[in-house]
Design a protein around this nucleic acid. Sequence first.
DNA 1: CGTTTTTGACCCGCGC
DNA 2: GCGCGGGTCAAAAACG
Length: 300
Amino acid sequence: MEEKAVKVENPIWSSPFLDCFPPNNHNTGLFNFLNDGEKSSLGFMELLGSQDFCPSLFDILEVPIASTEAPDQTQTFKSSEDLKQPTTPNSSSMSSASSGALVDEQITKAVEEEGQQKTKTLLKTKKTSQKRQREPRFAFITKSEVDHLEDGYRWRKYGQKAVKNSSFPRSYYRCTSASCIVKKRVERSLSDPSIVVTTYEGQHNHPSPVMARPSPAGSVISADAAAAFSLPVQMTLSYQPQFNSLGPMNCGYMNMNMTMTSTIPSAYLKERGLYTPSSALLRDHGLLQDVVTSNMKKEE
DNA sequence: CGTTTTTGACCCGCGC
DNA sequence: GCGCGGGTCAAAAACG
């Protein structure tokens, strides 16, 4: 594989596109939040597969898109105004060319386009939904120079296809763990090639190989990492975490080239059981930076 | 030598 | 039935 420096600019973890849009939201790139795991058999974190011993930064960062199998899971739709909350207000390494409203506009545009495509697909699949059972899928939009982002799991590429009307191919990956059927698709946005759209399908049935190494602080690192990404609290309070299953990206961390600055209130982390005095120590000692940079080194 | 990537072939569903 | 597009398979190549 070609080795190149990993540089992820302005990660937009708060901006997944919807795998399907309900007919009444005008496809304006609205987020749906699975904030009620009781109504569906699979709650948000179950679908994503978080795990008690190792909450991932995605516990906080990721937002699910509606499952193609269960669009009814959509509980809440945020207005586009909500999308305009700054995702990384303190990030000093944010892409200078595309920050603030511009990024929001790009995201919304990408979400719109993706959503419209998905809607078409959904309409088709609804007709024949009885035939093919699909795993719940989640998509994440990331502004990144690299296609395949490190998420803590090991993936094996099993296919690549040219995307219609796009000069960028779509790559298909499978989790390398035996008996794990999780797949992911990686493609670049039509509207903005600098945006990578990663779609996860299925649930991991094993812990992350990356974070599995014994480390008393391991479960804190990713929590702190999440805090470090300066998430708007609004984006993080709308669902109930369920640390009881495995998932696509739990225990993972991303190789982001960004400033580690936390704006997550410690009270919130406490509430989620993520904040411990040691986490504060970790932050103070820059351990997170070590984790991230070590991973980045691996990629270099 | 085991693992991963590449890539053309193949399968399937859908629209015409 | 045919063509198209999405997704997967699998053999060969590349890699560590």
